[in-house]
Simulated assay, not measured.
Amino acid sequence: MEKTIPQLNLLSVSSMMIRNRKHIMLITFIGLVIGLITSFIITPKYEAYTVFYIPANNSISKSVLGESNLEDFMEFGSEEQTDQVLEMLQADELKDKVIQKFNLLAHYDIKADEQYPLTKVRAQLTSNTKINRTDYLAIKIAVKDEDPKIAAEIANYMSFALDSMRTLMQQERAKQAFDILAYQYQKKQKQVDAILAQLSSIRAQGVFDYKAQSEVLSEAIIKAETQLKAEEARLKVYDLNRKDLPDTTYIKAKGRLEAARATLKSLQPTINTFSKLSGKYLNFEAVYEKEKEALTNLQLRYENAEVDLKKSAAQKFMIDKASVPEKSTYPNKLLVMLSMGLSAFLLACLGFLVKENSH
């Protein structure tokens, strides 16, 4: 004959539990006792945590030396920047710093000569550490350890190591920018010096201020030419009336005419030099002003890059610094006891259910 498989339903299960209630209650009680004993046997762990905000990744020179009233300098990091920091906190580089700092191989009782010791100690540190972002974009680092002091020290050190890592990364980028700007600044300075040397050479030859000199020379030429024409006209009049004039008057008139000619002639070399070099002077002066402005802009950027390279700011706004916890947070004795009791209850129900339906 074929064996009929009984149909299970809530009513049949409830009836089974009522019939075997004493045994089920006893087994459940035993599970609770075992859970209570287990909760005391498990080595307790203490949890310490630190909470901080990440500042925005803004240039120190722009934030402090700019005209933003320090708004950028005091600004919290965006969600994206916070997520980037969370990635950094999960990096093996930071874990290795913690492992070395606190000699976690020995602390976790992992032998250096056993297989994959570094992997094991990293995994143990990861299981003891919880890093997450709060609802308000702060970062919380919670560390569990059998030693409450070590738990607090690791939590605080991780935030400190993060600060150092971010500062180092920013300074590496600032160093690259500084080197580029230093090269460009020095190159531009040489260009400006070369142009200034050309201007100095032209000035040494007599052209040093085009506008002022052109005005003075124009006035001098006009004056000399006017004087020469006046003396020539006066001498012509004297020639017509020479017999009626004293010899001294005529001689003085000729002297003044020669003096006027000499004056105009003496201006000629200066005029020739000015005409020859003024074009070059104007060209070099225009280029010099343009390059000097470019050099000033480069110098400002160079100085800002130097500030970014040599100065650093805190990479976090600390909210809560980890302190030594006074009581353990693991294991949760009530939770362990209830879990064991519930497991015993379910196993007892399942066992009696199988037993009754096997007949």
Score class of each variant (00 low, 15 high):
M1Q: 14
I5H: 03
L8I: 11
M17C: 15
M25P: 08
I34C: 14
F40Q: 13
F40L: 01
I42F: 04
Y46A: 04
P55H: 07
N57K: 10
S63L: 04
L70K: 15
E75I: 11
S78E: 07
T82A: 07
D83M: 10
Q84D: 12
M88H: 02
Q90I: 02
D92V: 10
D109G: 12
K111A: 13
D113M: 01
L118R: 14
A138K: 01
A142H: 02
D145K: 12
M158H: 12
S159E: 00
S164P: 05
I180M: 11
Q186M: 04
L196Y: 12
S200A: 09
G206N: 09
Y210V: 15
S214Q: 12
L228D: 01
E232D: 06
Y238W: 05
R242V: 15
D244A: 13
Y250C: 02
R256I: 00
T263C: 00
L264Q: 06
K265R: 10
L277R: 04
L277W: 02
K280C: 04
L282P: 00
L295K: 04
L298P: 00
E303S: 12
K321L: 07
P325A: 05
E326I: 15
P331F: 08
V336C: 00
L338P: 11
G341S: 07
A344G: 06
A344R: 03
V354D: 00
